[in-house]
Write a protein that binds this DNA or RNA. Structure first.
Length: 320
DNA sequence: AAACTAGTCAACCGCTAGTCA
DNA sequence: GTGACTAGCGGTTGACTAGTT
């Protein structure tokens, strides 16, 4: 079926902000003839707009029952609870708030409520506490680790190494926007907090962040943990800085004795702090979360991390 | 004072579902 | 069953504004 375009520029239809004159024409027409018939309305009302634009203008701005101004606390609470129920079904949410439009609620959600929820540690998608979400993932991961048989270990280690290598690159690529003072706190306050129980070897972790282009307040930071390793795998004499890394650095979060990935380097609490500090770095956080959850999880359609190469080009393609 | 950045929100776009001939 | 059309929805864009450098 060929759809006729709604707004045809070649017909000289106007786009953009509405003028008071246009508003007046639309309002008086709808008041006289009622809503509906949007396709033919513009011509009848003497407007050089497409019907869709007229409907939207009426529904979101000119309708007499529209309530304008700040959202009240009650309205905000209603939006949150309705969002928990309906998700991003803005029209459904709007039906629960007389006088408010779906567009207005959607904008208010994206610019105010979402940020506030994240600040409070609540996931705006699931409405769960972020720590609960993480706990679910970590628990799943721990269960998965316990069911790995010794026959699988070699293969698993290879995958983990590739995963860690990939994540290292990802972290170098995207992690530079992490608030590094927070990361420094985590690393410096006692190093890794491994939760893996299938191996008793001491955990050591290499951490490097390229901070050359970091715009945060700290351009480099000093870890205090003596568990850190240099790029060649030797333990450093702390303190050392994280500002010297390059794309040729070895793994960022990998321990070659215990195939520890990025996630096991942080305990839940620290992970939350890290997550809070870089909530706007969604791609990086998504990748982290994916890495935590996907290894042996069923129903994951995306290509596993360990199947990716570790060049920047491949990483960019992966995120494209 | 000018340039830049970030936040806000009205309007647009692409798509789907429903209706009717 | 098919095609044309309308209404409505959710995601995205871009103009505008306020704040910051």
């Amino acid at each position: 079926m060929v759809r006729t375009p709604c707004c045809r520029a070649e017909l000289g239809l106007k786009k953009g902000a509405w003028t008071p004159e246009e508003d007046q024409k639309l309002t008086s027409y709808v008041n006289r003839h009622g809503e509906g018939g949007w396709r033919t309305l513009p011509e009848k009302a003497g407007l050089k707009r497409c019907g869709k634009s007229c409907r939207l203008r009426w529904a979101n701005y000119l309708r007499p029952d529209i309530k304008r101004g700040e959202f009240t606390e009650d309205e905000e609470l209603s939006i949150i609870s309705l969002h928990a129920l309906h998700g991003n079904k803005w029209a459904a949410i709007a039906r629960g708030l007389p006088g408010r439009t779906d567009n207005e609620i959607k904008n208010y959600w994206n610019t105010h409520i979402k940020k506030r929820l994240i600040k409070k540690g609540v996931d705006p998608v699931t409405h769960k506490n972020i720590s609960e979400n993480l706990q679910d993932i970590l628990e799943k991961r721990n269960i998965n680790q316990t069911i790995i048989t010794s026959d699988d270990d070699l293969d698993h280690n290879k995958k983990m190494e590739k995963s860690a290598r990939f994540l290292n690159r990802v972290a170098n690529r995207f992690g530079k926007r992490i608030n590094q003072s927070v990361l420094s706190e985590i690393i410096g306050s006692g190093g890794p907090h491994a939760t893996i129980t299938n191996n008793t070897t001491t955990i050591t972790t290499s951490v490097t962040v390229d901070s050359k282009s970091d715009k945060s307040t700290s351009s480099s930071f000093t870890p205090t943990s003596n568990l850190l390793m240099t790029a060649n795998g030797n333990a450093t004499s702390s303190p050392s800085t994280f500002s010297e890394s390059s794309i040729n650095d070895r793994l960022m979060y990998w321990d070659k004795e215990d195939d520890i990935g990025f996630s096991t380097f942080l305990n839940d609490e620290d992970f939350m702090v890290l997550e809070e500090s870089c909530v706007e770095n969604t791609e990086f956080m998504k990748e982290l979360t994916r890495f935590l959850g996907e290894d042996e999880t069923d129903n994951v359609e995306m290509m596993p991390v360990y199947e990716h190469q570790d060049s920047f080009e491949d990483i960019d393609n992966y995120f494209a």
